[in-house]
């Protein structure tokens, strides 16, 4: 085994275990902290895949913003019954079976795949940030998606503030 492979296996194992903790912990703050660990594992995978920009963005967006927002929401929606009782609903068994089914299906599909075992020879990724920047704003690239993403985030901001903003008649 090469160092790459060892690093990959360690990362994948840790973050998969952390993901299991995310969906099974009763304490929601613990779940959020394990989510951070999982997401950090994904960032390491991006480094292994030689996409450093996405790796730092992963840390910045998921750990720096989304996880913090999750923890804030957990604190804001504290319920006395949260820590006791079943964390799963009545569909848990069906859900487990469905997840297992999907997983085994995907493993059967990908497990025997012998293509793409190494990076292509003509692969220098050092310029990929410039390429990404050009492609995001090029007319024959993703400029529409780029602006739509901006609109989407604007819409999300407006919608979320509208939904969460306390109304006058609510505080009775």
């Amino acid at each position: 085994m090469t160092p790459d492979q060892i690093l990959f296996i360690v990362t994948a194992l840790i973050s998969t275990l952390a993901a299991v903790m995310v969906v099974s912990r009763r304490n929601m703050v613990h779940a959020a902290l394990f989510l951070v660990l999982t997401l950090f594992g994904v960032a390491v995978a991006f480094v292994l895949l030689e996409a450093p920009f996405l790796a730092v963005v992963q840390v910045l967006v998921y750990i720096g913003a989304i996880a913090i927002l999750m923890i804030f929401a957990v604190m804001l929606t504290r319920n006395v019954t949260d820590d006791s009782g079943d964390p799963f609903n009545k569909n848990a068994r069906v859900g487990g079976l469905a997840a297992l089914f999907v997983f085994s299906l995907l493993v059967v599909m990908f497990g025997g795949w012998s293509q793409f075992t190494a990076y292509p020879q003509a692969g220098d990724t050092s310029g990929s940030i410039v390429q990404l920047g050009v492609a995001l704003t090029a007319a024959d690239g993703y400029v529409i998606a780029f602006e739509v993403a901006s609109m989407l985030l604007l819409g999300a901001l407006v919608g979320a503030i509208f939904v969460v903003w306390p109304r006058q008649n609510e505080n009775e």
Partner: peptide, 29 residues
């Protein structure tokens, strides 16, 4: 329980954060 103001700041931060990262490759290129 905390007031919702904290969540709103975090929310605006999240949206700005994601939009700003879009701009970095643009600035480099």
């Amino acid at each position: 329980q905390f007031k919702v103001q904290y969540y709103i700041y975090a929310l605006i931060f999240l949206v700005f954060d994601v939009e700003i990262i879009f701009l970095y490759p643009w600035a480099v290129a």
